[in-house]
Design a protein around this nucleic acid. Structure first.
Lengths: 210, 210
DNA sequence: TCAGCACTCACATTTTTATGTGGTTGCCCG
DNA sequence: CGGGCAACCACATAAAAATGTGAGTGCTGA
């Protein structure tokens, strides 16, 4: 039995969802609320498996509610439910630990499926939302700079530098002499056009070499 | 009629997929290939709507194939198909413009649904993959974990360290004595729980202090 | 087969960092 | 008004890193 908590300001929709979900085999609607003003207390009191959270609500909105819940509970599954799949809200929601993001126009059958999916650790998303997420993701990560073509060994050394290892530690970790570590590092500096450990580390992060 | 192109090295699976998809109403399998060695030419010749792309193939693998296609064609929908939902591949795939990422264990009915969804601009994803994507996303965007409460001056010094400045340079840049730089840095190390410049730099990046 | 390159190691020297132990100012807040 | 703290400075020493020069091995590809 999947225990569901509802947050939705529209009384008709809230009723409708309660009927639909509560009337289905395997689902139980614990309660429904019209805003997130006491969301933390309510979640703690009811201890649901899945929360359906509308975004556009008066008072404390869904994103804010999501944050508040996540501040004290990272286990409960939270499905954002909204009319629009606007970029900003999607971004905010998933950045703050929402487990899924579905549109209100989702057909009833699908909705139940999504809730079940979220409950078992999935991340149900309306297709259009998924598309947005992928776009955001790829736009964020596309500018891998140059290659610097470090050799495997050099990459390995650089990784250890990033992890805060000293030359001595790297040497013992890689089973080579400390002087060998030195020459690797000298080579790395040449390739990255830097001349200190910390610059190399910074560059490794900036250019996502590691 | 959705025109589909298949890339899958396993002959049985390729045949099976061809049967399944080609035998379904509204779908047409144009061709199937066992590797991506001539992927660009093939895609241009057949001009499919959707490409099903296996990741683990000998020769040019699926990720590489994806890149090559995207270099010349950003319109065709590409669905990655794989046995594992390992982090690295998912990341690579979506960073390079895949439209979806589904596991081979996906039931036949779902598969057709996914292809149709991709064709209409959706981003079908196996739930476990979607979960991963959300995790990656939120881990990339989580606002600075701890605070470490560095003072303004300390933040300034750390910033210069990240920029590759030596103590001497920091001193002249900030118009303070090198010994003052030292004491600032010692304090920073205490607060960040590190004991070397490069560790501090790494932490600055990881925890987005800068 | 020969040049190029990655990888390995050695020795020496200088520079930079890290650590420790002091101290002085000036500000804010109880 | 006095304690706490950020910011400043000094001296000393040990450890680590950076730089230079040189050299052997083994693989690869022209």
């Amino acid at each position: 039995m999947i225990k569901v908590l509802l947050y939705e300001d529209n009384p008709q929709l809230r009723e409708g969802l309660t009927m639909l979900i509560g009337g289905s085999e395997g689902f139980d609607v614990l309660a429904g609320f019209k805003n997130c003003n006491n969301v933390v207390e309510e979640v703690q009191a009811f201890n649901p498996d899945v929360i359906l959270m509308d975004i556009d609500m008066p008072g404390v909105n869904g994103i804010e509610g999501l944050k508040q819940i996540r501040a004290v509970n990272t286990a409960v599954k939270i499905l954002m439910l909204t009319v629009f799949d606007d970029n900003k809200n999607v971004f905010q929601a998933i950045s703050n630990g929402a487990n899924g993001y579905i549109l209100k126009k989702t057909p009833p059958g699908k909705l139940l499926e999504y809730i079940a999916e979220a409950n078992t650790g999935g991340a149900p998303m309306t297709a259009s939302v998924a598309t947005q997420v992928l776009k955001m993701f790829s736009s964020m990560n596309n500018e891998k700079g140059e290659d610097y073509n470090l050799s495997d060994r050099e990459k390995q050394v650089l990784q250890l530098l990033v992890d805060g290892f000293s030359y001595k530690m790297i040497a013992s970790d890689m089973f080579i002499a400390i002087d060998t570590v030195r020459s690797h590092i000298k080579k790395i500096y040449e390739k990255l056009h830097v001349n200190s450990k910390s610059e190399a580390v910074a560059k490794a992060f900036k250019d996502r070499i590691i």
